[in-house]
Nucleic acid binder design. Sequence first.
DNA 1: TATGAATGAGACTTCATTCAT
DNA 2: AATGAATGAAGTCTCATTCAT
Lengths: 208, 208, 208, 208
Amino acid sequence: MTRGNPERKQRANGVESRRRILDAAVEISGERGYEGTSIAAVSAKCGLPASSIYWHFKDKDDLIAAVIERSFETWLAAVELPGDEAGTPLERVTAMAANVARSLAATPEFLRLGLMLALERRPKEPQGRTVFLQVRGIAHQRTGDMLRTLFPELDEDAVRTLTTYAIAGADGLFVHQEINADAGDLVEMFELHARLVYDAAARLAARP
Amino acid sequence: MTRGNPERKQRANGVESRRRILDAAVEISGERGYEGTSIAAVSAKCGLPASSIYWHFKDKDDLIAAVIERSFETWLAAVELPGDEAGTPLERVTAMAANVARSLAATPEFLRLGLMLALERRPKEPQGRTVFLQVRGIAHQRTGDMLRTLFPELDEDAVRTLTTYAIAGADGLFVHQEINADAGDLVEMFELHARLVYDAAARLAARP
Amino acid sequence: MTRGNPERKQRANGVESRRRILDAAVEISGERGYEGTSIAAVSAKCGLPASSIYWHFKDKDDLIAAVIERSFETWLAAVELPGDEAGTPLERVTAMAANVARSLAATPEFLRLGLMLALERRPKEPQGRTVFLQVRGIAHQRTGDMLRTLFPELDEDAVRTLTTYAIAGADGLFVHQEINADAGDLVEMFELHARLVYDAAARLAARP
Amino acid sequence: MTRGNPERKQRANGVESRRRILDAAVEISGERGYEGTSIAAVSAKCGLPASSIYWHFKDKDDLIAAVIERSFETWLAAVELPGDEAGTPLERVTAMAANVARSLAATPEFLRLGLMLALERRPKEPQGRTVFLQVRGIAHQRTGDMLRTLFPELDEDAVRTLTTYAIAGADGLFVHQEINADAGDLVEMFELHARLVYDAAARLAARP
DNA sequence: TATGAATGAGACTTCATTCAT
DNA sequence: AATGAATGAAGTCTCATTCAT
């Protein structure tokens, strides 16, 4: 019988280790931000020695960037559950907003860390911040596309303004919920937000 | 004027030193957050040795709390410039929003640091976070009062929802401007926000 | 009416301040030893600023030396309560031992700090250590004198040995009581010790 | 022999490093006590950087506790050299006392540091103190056992008293020798002590 | 007779990272 | 695919002490 060492740790599995490290890092950096995330803390939480983290990631900056990337994917997977595509345009928009709200409540780490990175002004900008801003750019793009599809009459200036407003509102409502742990329903607030933006767009589209 | 010895130690002046320390700390912590603010950096920026900082503040936590307090006062002073009290209610509300936007653009450190503190989840909550949330509570209160004055028909639930939405929008727009250094006019966006909230309130007040 | 400042602090009184400082320093240094006694801690306990301590004492070393001196006097005052001089020689010796035991239990700071200082080997010997050893030399001397008086036949070698043994026993029993807060009666142990030393001396005196 | 690069970093050897750290720490803490032992001093004496000390020991408290443990073992090894088991009971007891005296003279660090720790009253009791008191409890136990074996007639009260007295005397004599570097023979004093305790026990055993 | 303010040195500890195995 | 051991730099904070008032 092959004995190996009796304490677990079966044949080393790189993918699994990487996952464990990221799991730990997502949790910690989502709570403490960039500087607050120490390699030692990640090591302690995932059970792998610090040097192993450096086998999987070039440095702390690289790790945080990977965290942003992976937590974005996790969050995206939560958002893009199909959702019913039926109903009036307003209903569809509202349903989508509710979907985003639910996903943010379920996996807040992505946006929490992202906003912390975004607010900081560090001499050497962390990769993770760049990644976050890119990813956020996609959300911007999609929101803009949706507005253009729903209200083709809107000029580009109006689209840009409304898009910015839409995303800013989402960020702000997210922050509110993070601050007031007991906050009312995030979903309801997102729905209200969607309605207000929709109305504003409709009005602007009717009368430039 | 008696200058005394040119190398340091001019007749000790606690108030002035405290101010220098806070000036440096506001700037640094507004850019780097709690963990990113090192006493050594503050010391370097204000010219006083680290040990002197500890004469004026019990510890780093105490310093950051003082930073929040003072930067709030600075910001408040910028907001509360009288502002024209004339015009329709909507005009007055819009003017106030513009005022807030201008003050946030002029002295963003308060809200930048405050939001970073608010987003973090540190095992031992920093005093500064508590202070920020208190101060923020005041803004909430005042916004609610304004809504109640303008639309006495609104029930408390509606007031609460609209207040939350109003402040969340402000936070979100602020974040947007912080992220896009080149962002369009913060004032315009705040005015738009004010209008949308006003309209929503008006509609809710008309038909519960 | 002379008002002065309303908060106490009547006309500064040097003697009283010095006493407060020493009171605090005796307590702290009796618990923490030389290095463990910080000027800041003494300042906090006595309520006077650190700089005031330096007005009364040249430096920390000087303060600790003064502590030893004063706590010795305090202790001596407790020991030298007359005590009944009647009875057999053994009874008188035993009574004196009991007296010492009682005083050590009542004001242990002197010997506690003294022993800590005595055990340390610091590059620059603290004044306080020197003072303690001197004072201790007196106890040695007196104990020797008492033995010589009681047993004139003892040669100097025997006196020296018995004296050393007597004092070492006292030190050891004191340490025992300090370690076992709940220890039995220190007085009883001192009486036993006195008896054993007395017997030993008697035997040695009878048969060199 | 492959020597590799002459500047540091020869194939890492944890056990050896740990030993070097402890060697340095035993020496320093045996001379200066808990507070007097600075990590920087240990680092300088053992040649490893301070941060390396923290690889091997959680913190200073942990290091001092390890010092007590290891110096106890060192001392025990010195005591337990067999020693001639022949002769009368008194001779055997005396021989053992001499053995203890010799080992204390040879490796005094254990008891020196231990007594310093024992005398201090620190708000948060150092682990090392706890360890010392435990280890000391063993000595107490063994001494008691020996008395019970030699004088089965002694009641438990008498055993307890004599044991305490025996150990207190040993502590006191040790302190005496530490204070008077030039002190006479520690061995002789321990032998005398052993004899006196033996006699006292014999007398108590004969007539309760 | 004090004391508010300051200060350089040094305390303990954690940091991100490296490297030989 | 890892990891035990190490390390210099930097972290927060306390130290004993000074000095102008």
